[in-house]
Each structure stands twice: as structure tokens, then as C-alpha cells.
């Protein structure tokens, strides 16, 4: 164990052997991490923004024909206050008829009786999607709407349009490739630096082998060096990303857009540090093998 710690310290000290090569790689790792993070940041923000503006679930509420207009109009007021509601459209029977009439072909109008509309009081509610289980939230909301006095039926539909659906798919499928891309580029960058520091340590490694050092003894310092390069680079990259975000987050935050950029979710930010670290140690391991 003591030897192990010594080798880890050795890994730290070896960085000082080629400070410039290490520094360049460190910058490369930070930059690549920064770019990958920026990409994820854009995806993540557009994602949220599209979900909010497009609305996801709509409910149509129909009242009994015999419901009292006064009571219905009272409950309409409470609908406005529901959590997460984006838009409430209400229709009296007359309004509904007019609305319907405008969509019907000419000539069929006469069939509808203006004074005695057959249509019930109606409301259409649009909700922005919430995180977590949308289906469960949807059925709960539906049940709540059905409990309103005199409500006859409630129908719900997912309003997501094709654009946002397509975007959703794209953004779901973009995160993985970005992370994989990050890993590949990083492995090339760190692997090459490790090869370089290996070449310059060739004599030392040869001698270590000749005096009976086992493979792990030779590899551990390099592994530590690779992991260190990766994680410090990752941290710097994420820190840079955070600074950039901090300066830009209010860029679009003006009326009527009110679009405040949010930072990456914690798990993605952590991945941006963990991936370079893991890739750094793996690629230095591979560099020693070949």
C-alpha cells in the first residue's frame, strides 16, 4: 500500500518532467471538454425551451348541458390558477357554436339554431410538461378536472407537434454521440501525450525492468498521470463552460422571450469530468502496452 502511494506521488512528480507537453495536453483536454459541454448545453436549453413553448398536454373539459352558467363561469376562474397551466380557452355554448360555424362549409349554417345551441360549456386547457412521469401526472390531472361540479367528460391529448417530437428524438439521440465523440478525441490526445512521456522515460522503464520491477510498478505512475490529466482537464473545461454560461445566461432574457439559459444538469457535468478521467487512464494504459 505504501509503495502504491509512492507510485501515485511519482505519477504527480513525473508531470514536472515534461511540463510543456503536459500543459498542452491539459489545454487540449479542457478545450475538447468545453466544446462538448457547450454542445450539450445548447441541446439541453433548446430542449427545455421547446417543451415549454410547444406545450405538451391539452385537456378538453365538457360540462353538462343543464349546468348553471353562473357556476360554470366560477369554476373557469379556478382553472386559471391550476399548477403548470399555460393557456385556458373557454367557450359558452354560443361561442362554441360560432367557433364551430366558422369551420363548417357554407350552406350548412342554417341547420344550426342560433338561440338554442346544442353544444355544452367547454374549456380547453394547455399544460407545459412536467418532469418525471407524465402519464401519471396526466391521469391525476384528468381525475381532478372530472371532480369539478357538473363536468360531464374530460378528454386529454398530447399536443406535441411534429417539430418538437422530432427535436425530442434528435436531442435524445445527440447526447450519447457527443459523449462518445468526446471520449474518442480525448483518448487520442491523452494517449499520444502518454506515449510521448513514455518515450522520454524509455531509459528509466528499461532500467526498472532490468532491476526486476513488475509491470504494475511501471504502469501505475503513468496511469495516475493519465487520470490526472483527464480529470484536471475535465474540471477546467467544465469551469470554463460555467464561466461562459454565467456571462451569457441572460442574453435572451428580455421581453417577450424571457429565455434564461440554465446550466447543464449535474449528471452531465459530472460525466464531462469522469469521462476524460477514465479515458485518460485507459489510454495511458494502452500506451504502455504497445
Amino acid at each position: 500500500m505504501r509503495v502504491f502511494f509512492k507510485l501515485i506521488r511519482q505519477g504527480f512528480r513525473d508531470i514536472a518532467l515534461h511540463p510543456w507537453a503536459q500543459l498542452m495536453t491539459l489545454l487540449a483536454v479542457s478545450f475538447i471538454t468545453f466544446l462538448a459541454g457547450l454542445m450539450l448545453l445548447c441541446v439541453s436549453n433548446l430542449d427545455t425551451e421547446l417543451k415549454v413553448t410547444r406545450g405538451e398536454v391539452a385537456f378538453q373539459v365538457y360540462w353538462n348541458e343543464k349546468a348553471s352558467p353562473k357556476k360554470v363561469k366560477e369554476s373557469w376562474k379556478t382553472l386559471q390558477k391550476m399548477d403548470g397551466v399555460v393557456e385556458v380557452l373557454t367557450y359558452t355554448p354560443e361561442e362554441a357554436l360560432k367557433d364551430l360555424g366558422s369551420t363548417l362549409p357554407k350552406g350548412s349554417k342554417g341547420m344550426l339554431l342560433a338561440d338554442n345551441s346544442p353544444l355544452p360549456y367547454t374549456a380547453v386547457l394547455k399544460f407545459s410538461p412536467r418532469k418525471g412521469d407524465v402519464a401519471e401526472w396526466q391521469s391525476k390531472t384528468q381525475a381532478a378536472l372530472e371532480r369539478i361540479p357538473d363536468v360531464k367528460t374530460v378528454r386529454s391529448s398530447n399536443l406535441k407537434d411534429d417539430v418538437s417530437r422530432a427535436w425530442q428524438e434528435l436531442s435524445d439521440s445527440i447526447t450519447m454521440p457527443v459523449l462518445v465523440f468526446l471520449a474518442v478525441i480525448l483518448s487520442i490526445a491523452v494517449g499520444n501525450t502518454m506515449k510521448f512521456s513514455l518515450i522520454s522515460r524509455k531509459d528509466e522503464i528499461e532500467i526498472l525492468k532490468l532491476v526486476g520491477a513488475k509491470n504494475w510498478y511501471i504502469r501505475t505512475p503513468l496511469l495516475v498521470g493519465g487520470a490526472l490529466l483527464g480529470s484536471v482537464g475535465g474540471i477546467l473545461g467544465v469551469a470554463g463552460l460555467y464561466t461562459a454560461w454565467w456571462n451569457l445566461k441572460d442574453t435572451f432574457n428580455f421581453a417577450p422571450l424571457h429565455w434564461e439559459l440554465h446550466f447543464l444538469p449535474v449528471d452531465q457535468a459530472l460525466l464531462l469530468i469522469v469521462i476524460p478521467m477514465v479515458v485518460g487512464s485507459i489510454s495511458s494504459w494502452v500506451a504502455v502496452r504497445s
Binding site: 528509466e204 532500467i207 532490468l210 532491476v211 526486476g212 509491470n215
Partner: peptide, 17 residues
């Protein structure tokens, strides 16, 4: 490595750092 812990060598070209 085990063999080389039993056998020590003084190299013609020293092999020191």
C-alpha cells in the same frame, strides 16, 4: 521480474539515469 530479483547485472554501458 522474479528472475531479475535473483540475478543482478552490472551493464557494460552502466544503464544509470
Amino acid at each position: 521480474p522474479n528472475l531479475r530479483r535473483s540475478v543482478s547485472v552490472v551493464f557494460q554501458d552502466f544503464k544509470i539515469l
